[in-house]
Write a protein that binds this DNA or RNA. Structure first.
Length: 863
RNA sequence: GCCUGGGUGGCGGAAUAGGUAGACGCAAGGGACUUAAAAUCCCUCGGCCCAUAGUGGCUGUACGAGUUCGAUUCUCGUCCCAGGCACCA
């Protein structure tokens, strides 16, 4: 201290001190309790953005807090370094994805260090390094051995003009984002992980994750989407074939009047072949291939279909049912075929009306009659069975069970479980990813790469095609190889790379032994550190990343590599930092700095055109609605930036970006600083008071109690809810209280209490503004680092309140309040309330019906 | 569209078990200090109403109903916003 608060000077001073003393480096210490705190690692996009700053500040507070509580804290950081933006940047700037990525990593590492986060940088990893992904390839081979991986045909977005596969993000309104031409669906052979084998287990464990937010659990359950139902076989007319359908409403089979197949269903072409409908069907399939799959499932989307020229037979009543192919039937769900029951399903009803199909009511609601001729809304609820042969009169719920059994008996169906969850397609037709270690041999077929040949290194000497897409399959020196089985030279490597979600499904294990080179990780290290005690990241990952990680952990568990099934014991999903987007008709999305304010409007700096202000949405590089934290860092320093992020809102809530308030955070730190300056001389050589509050009187007594109350408030706010904003408010109140005390006060205990209060404030603030707290701590004559000091504890006897405010209501409306001693009985409070003059005015002579007394808090008089 | 959240002053937010709505901070306005400014400190601050200016009245937590002595909090319905929807990460 000494002089003005100068964040730049003290922040670099302490960052150097931490680095020199390797303060954040950790090792396994079997006797100490470990705490693994993990934040979702970033994609190295070039600069950290406010979302990172918020996420990592929250994590850092918890890491430092747990450390002060005596835990051996593992707090690592690394890079989710494979992914599409590197390829896009490579095309745009003619830089190699690897160079772009490593440069970005260097820049972002510097920024993170500048923020003062307590990472053990010795454990840094980057997933694009062969030392990392070789073990992912190794696991792929193990999974292949165990039959946990397979290949099948599946659809991708294909741009004919660019001759390339597009990510969903690269398709804008059905058009290619590069050339603007329509995108079509194309079938490719791709690799899949059998995540559905674990669907039941993943679902069951949802209820064994008490440390996870309820909403994430609910989303995962719904995503897995287990439904009980039946598979029923409908024979195709004049053919030995049959169509299998999955339904949860087998009680309505008697009402099934037609059949709908997904356009991709193999039987569509087969059955329409040679019929008058063949051409129409073919055209429909073609048209559907050009449509976005997610759009197809919209309920508002016009339902349409084509009769395929064939019929099937309802196995329960022998009704002849026309077979359609329809846009709302999805190949990915169930069997790709839907038995349509128009009376009891709205979608089917719309379709039946449109094409004039038969409607038969089979479930009668308890309170009214359904007329199939006039039916407008399908009846999807329970009721009494009608028009259903021997099941008539039965309750539909019961019939569901009975019909399922009956189908099983007759051999035309069976009870079954269906999941919405689909297998995880991991093939990417991209360059910047981990190569899939497989070989296609002309004679042997698919052959795994022998373990000794790992890693299959991604070749660095490449040029990316302008239109996007992977150059790997054209690179003979990479893809031409010998078959490891027969030795033939007529073999080619798999040129697909893995989905980047695979890397992020096990990086937390790798952190435990980042340099281990004889396996994925050192079992001893993983046994000590895993599972992650607290995981922190954006809600946008609530389903995919978290579910994939849970799945991958089960695979590791089944292969005997880890002892646990769930990787993350507690989860905090932080809300997003959002901002409005700016869109120039000429130049597309603009960064905030690329638009100029003139009066109330904004204009593009490049072309001067007025720009459109878009929705407020998640800050992302592709939308350019990002704020560069460097500006805050330069102007105010890391501590103010951290404090502001924490104070702005509770972590789980979304935060619409606004700079208002940063000034306040800075001002607060200055306030604390000056408080230290003012008192330093009078408290430097005094021991902090830590006795019984009853030994104090007057202002010191009040301040002493307030300090203990603040310690309690801050501790529970962090411990129970991570509500740093209210914790900071409490410290602000404490500081305000300290300002109320005059330096000249001659009360004997003032200095001791003041020292206690200032030290407590420094300790409580230290996880949030660590550089600042170190500086104060040192000025008070304490030995650095403050991180090694224990977290303060509070005295119960200092928390007791001496008096209480009682609120008096008449008919629920606030009419009066008064203060009583904390030990006043309820009866006395009631008498005091009734005797209150302001209350009597409201009661007048009306009879008192009821009096409610809430202990030492409130009286409500009902008249 | 489906799944999951959210909506409280001019703004960020608080109210943790149904019990004083607006803690703490920002912005704004007024005042003190200063030759002046910055910084700092003090005061006011949801809206409306009043001959009584008060420890005053009414109203107010997206909207509409309901449960309750009492609802920001619970229930039902509506509107709006955000996230996810399987190749952005």
């Amino acid at each position: 201290m000494g002089g003005k608060y100068d964040p730049k000077a003290i922040e670099s001073k302490w960052q150097l001190f931490w680095e020199k003393t390797d303060l954040f480096g950790v090792a396994q210490e079997p006797d100490r309790k470990k705490y693994y705190l993990l934040e979702m690692f970033p994609y190295p996009s070039g600069k950290i953005h406010m979302g990172h700053v918020r996420n990592y500040t929250i994590g850092d507070v918890v890491a430092r807090y747990k450390r002060m509580q005596g835990f051996n804290v593992l707090h690592p950081m690394g890079w989710d370094a494979f992914g599409m933006p590197a390829e896009n940047a490579a095309i745009a700037n003619k830089t190699h994805p690897a160079k772009w990525t490593y440069d970005n990593i260097d820049a972002m590492r510097t920024q993170l260090k500048r923020m003062g986060f307590s990472y053990d940088w010795n454990r840094e990893i980057a997933t694009c390094k062969p030392e990392y992904y070789r073990w992912e390839q190794w696991l792929f081979l193990k999974m292949f051995e165990k039959g946990m991986v397979y290949r099948k045909e599946s659809l991708v977005n294909w741009c004919e003009t660019c001759q390339t596969v597009l990510a969903n993000e690269q398709v804008e309104a059905g058009m290619c984002w590069r050339c603007g031409k329509p995108v079509r669906q194309k079938n490719l052979w791709q690799w899949f992980f059998r995540i559905t084998d674990y669907a039941d287990d993943l679902l069951a464990y949802c209820d064994k994750l008490p440390g996870w937010p309820e909403k994430v659990i609910t989303m995962q359950k719904n995503w897995i989407g287990k439904s009980l139902g039946a598979e029923i076989r409908f024979p195709v007319e004049n053919s030995g074939d049959h169509i299998a359908v999955f339904t949860t409403r087998q009680d309505t089979v008697f009402g099934a009047t037609f059949m709908c197949l997904a356009p991709e269903h193999p039987m569509v072409r087969e059955l329409s072949k040679g019929t008058a409908q063949e051409e129409k069907v073919s055209a429909f399939i073609e048209r559907m291939a050009t449509q976005d799959r997610s759009v197809r499932t919209l309920e508002t989307y016009e339902k349409e279909g084509v009769f395929i020229g064939a019929y099937c037979i309802n196995p329960l009543n022998n009704r002849r049912m026309p077979i359609f192919t329809a846009n709302f039937a999805l190949m990915e769900y169930g069997t790709g075929a839907v038995m349509s029951v128009p009376a009891h399903d709205q979608r089917d009803l719309d379709f039946a009306r449109k094409y004039g199909l038969e409607i038969v009511v089979v479930v009668a609601p308890p309170d009214r009659d359904l007329e199939s001729a006039t039916l407008r809304e399908a009846y999807a609820d329970e009721g009494k069975m009608i028009n259903s042969g021997k099941f008539n009169g039965m309750d539909s719920k019961k019939a569901r069970d009975e019909i399922a059994s009956y189908l099983e008996e007759k051999g035309i169906g069976r009870k079954t479980v269906n999941f919405r969850l689909r297998d995880w397609g991991i093939s990417r037709q991209r360059y910047w990813g981990a190569p899939i270690p497989m070989i296609h041999c002309k004679t042997c077929g698919i052959v795994p790469v022998p373990e000794k040949d790992l890693p299959i290194i991604l070749p660095e000497n490449v040029e990316l095609p302008e239109a996007g897409g992977s150059p790997l399959h054209q690179m003979d020196y990479f893809s031409k190889t010998r078959c490891p089985a027969c030795g033939s030279s007529d073999a080619r490597r798999e040129t697909d790379t893995m989905d980047t979600f695979v890397e992020s499904s096990w990086y937390f294990e790798r952190y435990c032994s980042p340099d281990y080179n004889t396996g994925m990780f050192d079992t001893g290290a993983v046994d000590y550190w895993m599972p992650v005690d607290q995981y922190i990241g954006g809600v946008e990952h609530a389903i995919l990343h978290l579910l994939y990680s849970r799945y991958y952990t089960r695979v590791l568990n089944d292969l005997g590599l880890v002892k646990y099934k769930e990787p993350f014991t507690r989860l905090l999903t932080q809300g997003m930092v959002c901002k409005e987007t700016i869109h120039c008709p000429e130049h597309g999305f603009l960064f905030p700095g690329e638009a100029e304010d003139r009066e109330t409007k904004k204009f593009c700096r490049k072309c001067g055109t007025e720009v459109a202000l878009g929705r407020v949405e998640k800050m992302s590089k592709s939308k350019k609605n990002v704020i560069d934290p460097d500006i805050l860092l330069k102007k105010y320093g890391a501590d103010t930036t951290r404090l502001f992020c924490l104070f702005a809102s509770p972590p789980e809530r979304d935060l619409e970006w606004s700079e208002q308030g940063v000034e306040g955070a800075f001002r607060f730190l200055n306030r604390v600083w000056r408080l230290g300056e003012t008192w330093l001389d009078s408290i430097r050589s005094v021991a902090p008071f830590d006795g019984n509050p009853d030994d104090l009187n007057g202002e010191p007594r009040v301040l002493y109690k307030k300090t203990h109350q603040t310690i309690k408030k801050v501790t529970t706010d962090i411990e129970e809810r991570f509500h740093f904003n209210t914790a900071i408010s409490a410290i602000m109140e404490l500081v305000n209280a300290m300002y109320g005390i005059e330096t000249e006060t001659k009360a004997p205990d003032t200095a001791g209490v003041m020292r206690f209060a200032i030290e407590s404030a420094a300790l409580l603030l230290s996880p949030m503004v660590p550089h600042f707290a170190e500086e104060i701590w040192e000025a008070l004559g304490r030995k650095p680092s403050i991180l090694k000091a224990p977290w303060p504890s509070y005295r119960k006897d200092a928390l007791l309140k001496e008096d209480r405010m009682v609120v008096v209501q008449v008919n629920g409306k606030l009419r009066s309040k008064f203060i009583v001693d904390a030990d006043t009985e309820d009866d006395t409070i009631r008498e005091l309330a009734l005797a209150d003059e302001r209350i009597r005015k409201f009661i007048e002579d009306k009879p008192v019906k009821k009096i409610i007394v809430v202990k030492k808090k409130l009286v409500n008089i009902v008249v």
